[in-house]
Design a protein around this nucleic acid. Sequence first.
RNA 1: GGGGACGUAGCUCAAUUGGUUAGAGUACCGGACUGUCGAUCCGGUGGUUGCGGGUUCAAGUCCCGUCGUCCUCGCCA
Length: 599
Amino acid sequence: MASWQRTHTCGELTPDHADQEVTLNGWIENNRHHGSLLFIDIRDRYGVTQLVFDEEIKGTPSGLLELAGKLGAEDVISVTGRVARRDEDKVNPKRSTGGIEVYASQLTVLQEADTPPFEVLDNPEAGEELRMRYRYLDLRRRPMLEAMEKRAAFVTAVRNYLAENQFIDVETPILTRSTPEGARDYLVPSRVNPGKFFALPQSPQIFKQLMMVAGADRYYQIARCFRDEDLRADRQPEFTQIDMEMSFVEEEDVLQMVEGMMVKAFESAFGAKLPQPFVRLDYQEAMNRYGSDKPDLRFGMELIDICELAAKSDFKVFSGAIENDGMVKGLLVAGQADKFSRKAIDALTAYVSEYGARGLAWGKVGDEGITGPIGRFYAGEAGEELLAAMGAARGDLMLFVADRPSVVLRALGELRVKLGTDLGLRTPGDFRFAWVTNFPLFLYNEEHGRYDSSHHPFTAPVDWDLSDYSQNTESIRSRAYDLVMNGWELGSGSIRIHRREVQERVFSFLGVDEAEQQAKFGFLLEAFRYGAPPHGGIALGVDRLVALALGCESIREVIAFPKTASATDLLCDAPSEVAPEQLADLHILTHNPKPGSQT
RNA sequence: GGGGACGUAGCUCAAUUGGUUAGAGUACCGGACUGUCGAUCCGGUGGUUGCGGGUUCAAGUCCCGUCGUCCUCGCCA
C-alpha cells in the first residue's frame, strides 16, 4: 500500500478510534485559518472529517501548517494523523464525525484543483445549466451522491427480488429495427448496409415476448430505452426501465409479483413501508373521479358530476353542454373561498384553458346563497340542489367545467392537481401506489381519424374471441394495467396476445395490412406459429420511481448525466458534428449543414 | 412546431419612469487572528449586462432577430 493510501474513510471515525494513527484521502471542503491554528475539513463520499494543524500546542510538524494553509477548495489530499476525541464543548453535533478530529502529522497534495465554477455545497447555489456543464462537480455534492446510492440500492433490491423469483436477466439488442407507430426512433446508420438503419429500442417489447416463446418463462432486464420525442421534467430521450415478462400468467400474477417487488425494494432502498394491497382503480372510474388515468391519491377533492342538474339549468353554458353530448363536472374547494380573489380565479380559468376548456364557471357559498357568475342561475331551490350535489357549505368555492367529456375530465383533472399543489394538500413521504386497470383497447385518434392501440398492438383484449373490433370499439377493454403513484405513471403492462389469429385481427383493425405486418412484425407473428405461451409483463420507469421516492421535481436529479430540454448533453457537448469521412463511410449526405459551424 | 419565464462579476442576485462611474452577498487574492466547523475582522481584484441589429441626446432597462436554460401545449403505441 502506498504511503498516501487511506486507512479509513472520512465518514467512519468515532471517539472509539481515539489515539489511532489514520490516513484519510479526500477533497478539501473548507479551510478555516486562525493564524497558527488551522482547521481543514476533508470530504469523501462517506462524510467529512475535521483536520487540525497546530504547531504550538498539538505538535504539528514544522512547516506543515504553512503548506496546509495554502490549500484551497477541492484540492485532493492525503493526510495522516492521530484521531483525538473532542472536548464536550467542541463537539459538532451536525456531523457523524463531530465527536473527533485528526491532528495532522503528514500531508500529501495528490492533486491541486482550479477554483471550481461553483461551490460544492449541499444546497445547489448554481443553476441547472452550470450544474450539467460541470456535472462531476455537481455529483460531488452529497445529496447527488446520495441519490446515486439510493438509486443503486433500489435497482439492487429489484434484482435480488427478481432473482429470488426465478427471473433471468437477459440482454436484448440496442441496435435493432425501426418499428412503425409509437415514438420517433433514434436511428443508427449501417456502414456495411448502405442506406439502411438500425433503430435504438423504445423498449425491448418484442424481444421479451420472443424470450417467452423461447421458454425463458420469467425474464427481466434493467433496460435502457430511447425515444426521440420532446422532453419534460419527467421525460428524457434515454431512460431506464425495469422490463419484465412472465409466461403462463394472468393479470393477477403479474400484479402480485410487481407489488411484492415494489414493497421490498422501497423498504430496502428508501426505508418506506408501502401499504398493501395497492389500490385498484378501473380506468373509467379513475377518469370520472380524478380526471386522470394516473391519479394523485394523496388528497381527495374528487370531480363531482352534476350533469343531471346541468341539463335542466337556466344557465345555457351548462344545459347547452349537456344537449351537445357534453358533460358538466365540478370541484369543491372546501372552506377556502376567501383565499380565491377574482384575480386568482381568473388565473385558474387561464390554467384550464391550456387544456382546451373554454371557461371555468364558479360560485362561492356565502351567507345568502351562491355568489359569483353562476349565482343568479342558482338562487332558491336550484341553488339548494346544487349545494347538495356538491356537498358544499358556507365558505366553500365551487368550480365547474362544461364541455366535451374529454375536455371536462382533462381540465378538471389538471386543475385538481394544481389546487392540490397550491393548497398544500399533500404530505411529503406519502407514497400512494395504485393499479389502473380495464383500459380501452383502442383510442380514437382525432388527428388521423382512426383508432390506435391505447397501450400497444400486442395487448390482449379482455375477450380475445371478439371477431369484429369495429363494433362497439370504444367499449372493448384491454388486459392492460398501469402502475401509478402520486400522479405519475410509473409503469405500464399487459397480458399479451399469444394467438397469431388474434394478433393479425388487431393489426388489420389498426390498418396495418398483411404486407406491412409481414414486413414489420413478420418475425414475431412467425414466432407465434411455433408455440407461444400465454404471457404478460410490465415495464417500470426507474428514473421516475427513484425521483418520486426521493421527492425530486425532475428525473434529472436522479440521472448522473442527463440531457437538456433540447436533448443535448452540456457536459460532452453532444450531439456534435462529425467528420465528412465518417458521413461518407455511412453513405450519408446531410441536407442543410450549418456552414463550418463548430462550437 | 406553439406558448411562457429567465439570461447582469467565477456563482446567486439587485439596479425606481430609459438618465451620473452597474451594486450586494459569496467565491477568489492579500493581511490579522489559538477552538473554528457556512469562522470572524480589515483591504483588494473582478463587468463586451448572452449575441446581433434598431429606436433615442442617452439603453442592463424599449423594439426586432438570434442563441441558451427551465416550465408547458402538441408529441411521447
